[in-house]
């Protein structure tokens, strides 16, 4: 395609991103802001696709716009709609803030342009390409996430866990939804199995094509969100005692593999090259379950109300007794 046309398309997409981003945060009407924000997220997914980052396009659609949108919509449902008309900021504050923002933008833009001019753009890409064949997967993004920089991903799973544990510690879940009408019910009956299959596919395909544990986990969580919208309070989650294990599964698998290899003379999280593919799949499968359960619990906002008590120790004790 004509490079000039590309540039015009790029400029159009950039202008729309800036416009939607601005509109989403500038409005006082939260409902409107949220709708604009979700549209912004979808446009961002388009930008990732344009910039040849399909893994991110998937992740943005599933997590950034999807799960985050669902979380925000659920929060809006319980937000008082009248809104508290905030005191208008003083002119001096506004002027200072605007001046500061402009200066900051100019400084960062200047730095970014000069940083881009400093290199030829190769950076670590060369090293990734050279070592890709030893990584056990052929999708370079998965290779970085699950092998070269697996330690980041380990801590990232801990970030998700800490957020959801923080949510759970804040108290019981909000009440669920009433049973839906027949149309929505029919839709959910179709969509939930489809999402579960898609999640499994994304997990499997991540080794050599765009996809992986995070996209797969978010897709499974989307199924849970739909179930909850369809009136299933527990959103398909198992009992709390099992859910706790599922929450921990991703990190447990990661640590187990990371430590087990050290017994054979390897370093921490250093996969033997022959086994790398299998080990990565084990870790990713466990991580997918953990991410799905964590995002679902975060959406529900606590242990599901039908067994609100089973998250606590007391019923947990009785449950433990019956097993």
């Amino acid at each position: 395609m004509n490079p000039l046309l590309w540039m015009l398309l790029d400029l159009l997409l950039a202008a729309m991103l800036l416009g939607l981003g601005w509109a989403a945060v500038a409005t006082r009407d939260l409902k409107r802001g949220l709708a604009l924000f979700i549209a912004f997220g979808l446009l961002l997914a388009l930008a990732w696709a344009r910039l040849r980052a399909p893994d991110l396009a998937l992740a943005e659609a599933a997590i950034g716009a999807g799960i985050a949108g669902a979380l925000l919509l659920a929060a809006l449902r319980s937000e008082p709609q009248d809104g508290q008309p905030a005191a208008a900021p003083s002119r001096v504050f506004l002027l200072t803030l605007n001046l500061f923002s402009v200066l900051l933008a100019v400084a960062i833009a200047w730095a970014l342009l000069s940083a881009l001019a400093m290199g030829d753009g190769v950076r670590l890409a060369q090293a990734v390409t050279e070592h890709l064949s030893q990584s056990g997967v052929s999708n370079p993004v998965t290779a970085v996430l699950l092998n070269f920089r697996a330690y980041d991903t380990l801590l990232e799973l801990a970030v998700i866990l800490s957020a959801v544990l923080g949510v759970l510690a804040l108290g019981p879940a909000r009440p669920g939804y009433r049973l839906p009408g027949p149309v929505l019910y029919g839709l959910i009956r179709w969509l939930v199995p489809l999402l579960i299959v898609t999640g499994g596919y994304l997990l499997w395909v991540g080794a050599h094509a765009p996809g992986g544990a995070f996209q797969a986990g978010a897709t499974l969580a989307a199924a849970a969100v739909l179930l909850r919208l369809g009136g299933v309070d527990a959103a398909g989650l198992p009992a709390a005692v099992v859910s706790r294990w599922l929450l921990a599964a991703g990190l447990l698998a990661f640590l187990a593999v990371g430590l087990l290899v050290t017994a054979f003379g390897y370093g921490f999280v250093q996969y033997p090259p022959d086994l790398a593919a299998g080990l990565i799949l084990v870790i990713e499968s466990a991580a997918t379950l953990s991410i799905a359960v964590a995002l679902a619990l975060a959406y529900i906002g606590g242990w599901p109300s039908r067994r609100a008590q089973s998250g606590s120790l007391h019923t947990h004790t009785t449950e433990g007794g019956t097993h």
């Binding site: 893994d55 925000l72 890409a125 370079p140 996430l145 804040l170």
Partner: peptide
């Protein structure tokens, strides 16, 4: 092809952002 390292970093960032959003909303 684009450098995959920033892609992996951004994927991590997206997940961190949604986690923080969930905690803030709760």
């Amino acid at each position: 092809v684009p450098d995959p390292v920033p892609h992996a970093l951004v994927l991590t960032g997206i997940v961190v952002a949604v986690s923080a959003t969930a905690l803030a909303l709760a």
